[in-house]
């Protein structure tokens, strides 16, 4: 082992560390494909308003359910809107809402998990019970309840999704903290007389961070699926905003003679989920985390 070489690598700052992780992720075919899909979707979501050939909400009954042609690449839907335009824009809302939702899940899940792992004992037991009890309610029913009470605005959807998908992160963060807390370097810091905050910040967080981030990345893809199901049921994005879940739901009944209106959003949604999943897996591997043993969900 060329030790001096390694230590050089380690001296680099955060940006180059991120770069290093990305490079490791891309070095395996699955990670590379995942990253490509994800980057493609992010680019598409941010650029689609400028790329879209038509207005996504322009309704024209005369163009109803046209088959794909050189003019309308993916055909048109039952209201005569261009499916291509709606497809490339259909990931925007889902991606944004679930991204911020995941951040919220990471934040509360991570913090609560670390807290429980730290205090342990009775408080830990009680908190975990409460969390479990809350979340044993089927999430989709709970979401429907929330949405019907508070509406489907972004301000409602993001925290609600973030809340329901944070549970797994609580568990992972708690388990990781439990592991770290027993280590002698924590005992050593306590014996030196460091404050609790300093111990959490310097000793614990750097050692649980990776596991929590990986879990968050995984949750993101699940949340995306969940959010699209909501839209499918009509409780997510409200029309006429283009959204894959909504598009699938609207075009579902016409599938036998207008397959094009369904296929495009299905491909969009599933490729994004697969992309995030592959990326999260590669991320975990690049950070050296074995999800099969670390995620007790």
């Amino acid at each position: 082992m060329d030790i001096d070489k390694i230590s050089e690598e380690d001296q680099k700052n955060i940006i180059s560390k991120v770069f290093e992780v990305l490079k490791t992720m891309a070095s395996k075919p699955s990670g590379f494909i995942g990253l490509c899909i994800l980057v493609f979707h992010i680019l598409l979501a941010s650029l689609s308003p400028y790329l879209a050939p038509y207005d996504y909400k322009a309704i024209d009954p005369s163009l109803m359910l046209q088959a794909p042609s050189s003019e309308y690449w993916f055909g048109t839907d039952s209201l005569g809107r261009d499916v291509f335009t709606r497809t490339i824009m259909g990931g925007r809302t889902a991606l944004t809402i679930t991204f911020f939702g995941s951040l919220i899940a990471l934040l509360w899940g991570g913090l609560l998990g670390i807290f429980c792992g730290l205090v342990g004992g009775k408080i830990d037991d009680v908190v975990m019970r409460v969390v479990d009890a809350f979340l044993s309610i089927p999430w989709i029913l709970a979401m429907l309840l929330i949405v019907s009470l508070l509406g489907t605005s972004t301000e409602v959807l993001i925290p609600a999704l973030g809340f329901f998908y944070g549970k797994g992160i609580v568990r992972v963060a708690r388990a990781a903290t439990h592991d770290v807390i027993a280590k002698d370097f924590i005992v050593s810091a306590r014996a030196r007389g460091h404050s609790n905050m300093s111990i959490i910040w310097n000793e614990i967080i750097p050692n649980v961070r990776d596991a929590i981030l990986v879990e968050g990345a995984m949750r993101w893809s699940w949340m995306l699926l969940g959010f699209s199901s909501l839209s499918f049921l009509g409780f997510g994005v409200s029309p006429p905003t283009p959204d894959w879940g909504l598009m699938i739901s609207n075009a579902r009944g016409l599938m036998s003679f207008a397959y094009w209106a369904v296929i495009a959003p299905v491909v969009g949604l599933s490729s994004l989920i697969i992309g995030i999943n592959l990326t999260a897996d590669a991320f975990a591997k690049a950070l050296g985390i074995d999800r099969s043993t670390k995620a007790p969900v």
């Binding site: 280590k183 002698d184 370097f185 005992v187 050593s188 014996a191 030196r192 310097n202 000793e203 750097p206 050692n207």
Partner: peptide
Amino acid sequence: IQLIFQNPDESLNPNH
């Protein structure tokens, strides 16, 4: 009063 532990793998923070 300072402590030195048995297993240096556990007593040094791997991230520092």
